[in-house]
Amino acid sequence: MALGLGQLLYVLLLFINAIAILSEERFLGRIGWSAQQEPGFGDQGQSIKYKLVNLISAVRTLLRIPLIGINVLVIIYELLLG
């Protein structure tokens, strides 16, 4: 019951961090989850795997720079007040 809003924020932040540090050519490409692999499938656009791959690549490209700032803020907060 100790999970409050702050902890939820941390969990989300750590999850997004985890997604954002997945390496494209070392990890995602090897297991076939690279975003560039299937550009032109018709039915592929509906599958869960395609959605996940799309989500991961979107997070990697879109959230990389905001994540730096948010992480720095959280680290400073934890150092000072945690």
Partner: peptide, 12 residues
């Protein structure tokens, strides 16, 4: 604490 925890559950 209660409010925060239950809000966290709703958000989750």
């Amino acid at each position: 604490f209660t409010a925060s925890a239950s809000l966290a559950i709703v958000f989750t």
